[in-house]
Design a protein around this nucleic acid. Structure first.
Lengths: 192, 192
DNA sequence: CTCATTCTATACCGTTCGGTATATTGTGTC
DNA sequence: GACACAATATACCGAACGGTATAGAATGAG
């Protein structure tokens, strides 16, 4: 692993464990076996490091999610596909997933929240687009696509986080059945 | 307002806006119109300030929640009472509610997460106790009280946060109907 | 071999960090 | 008026913060 990747990996470990603000640049470079100028050569600043970390780990996932969110006439199946993609991603990258969630809920005027916003917005757009596509069929959304998508995201993200925690990080399993059950639970609220 | 309360209020504002780690003691005392030794006289350390902030604002709420969670034979009504209490608290203290949620999701090895744990545990216990009490009647929980309570907490907390955000912090309204609808949505997943 | 470019280390910068030793100012008690 | 005690300010501490000026090593191209 080259130095750049090593720094990214170390930063992920540390930000995950203690948070962006509580981790110093010095500690990152020491654990990575490099010195400060190396970090600043690749990332320009501590904030740049966080940005590139979020982009390098988030981009591949966003592409997979985009494909999974392609609406094909059935809202339930599409939501299940999206939720399944989120779950499999969380299983593959539990630390990044947890870090993402922490940043998602962090203070709005904090640097770290600004850095994660692009990813959050894209996630919201992908999910919201599902409901927009389904509006033609459902017909009764009355412009509540945003509300529905936010609620769906919150439900799924939190459920996955809980399942990650009770299994101690690794070994998380989330079956197709559980996904369908969650989606069913969510949709029942919509239709009633 | 005396100096101690002034410091607490300022700390809440700043921690809410930018997060515990990103705010320095210097800024807190400047905005409070006092000097550092005054802060350290009352709170002993920055961490102590956070602890006392969480306790002073969290304790009154926990007491109200405890009463609301008293199980009286009907799971739906009890859950609605608990959720309603959470909602009214969020409406009264939106900044503290949001700060609590941010800390709840922050990195586990971070100081701030350690500080909020007592409150988190008590919240979980209150909610879990509802399901434990209901177990005699439901009978089919198979020791899943913890899982149910965590899921319920996640659903309610996130829903309230969303409603806070779309209304720009103040002017949040969450009707009794919405509460009942949420609880219904949650329970349908349990019974099915 | 030479030169440009990429990458990395030594050593340092000013600033801010959380925290404190010491002294002074109320304020009510005896 | 003397005393105790709570509350506050001045001035300072060493350490850690994010960041950088400068120079040296490595690498491939001509």
């Amino acid at each position: 692993m080259d130095n750049r990747e090593m720094i990214l990996e170390t930063a992920l470990d540390l930000f995950y464990a203690r948070g962006y603000d509580a981790v110093g640049v010095q500690e990152i470079v020491e654990r990575s076996g490099v010195t400060k100028p190396t970090l600043y050569y690749y990332f320009k600043s501590k904030y740049g490091l966080l940005e590139q970390l979020l982009e390098s780990r988030g981009e591949p996932f966003m592409e997979r999610l985009h494909k999974a969110c392609a609406y094909e006439g059935d809202l339930r199946n599409t939501l299940s596909a999206a939720a399944g993609e989120l779950a499999s991603f969380a299983k593959q990258e539990p630390k990044f997933y947890t870090l993402f969630l922490a940043l998602y809920h962090s203070a709005k005027e904090n640097e770290a929240y600004q850095a994660v916003r692009p990813l959050v917005i894209r996630l919201q757009q992908e999910i919201e687009q599902i409901f927009v596509s389904a509006a033609g069929i459902l017909g009764n959304m009355h412009g509540r696509q945003r509300q529905f998508s936010l609620g769906f995201i919150g439900l799924i993200l939190y459920d996955i986080k809980m399942k990650l925690e009770v299994n101690g990080g690794l070994r998380m399993t989330i079956s197709q059945e559980e996904i369908h059950s969650l989606v069913h639970q969510f949709m029942h609220g919509i239709y009633s």
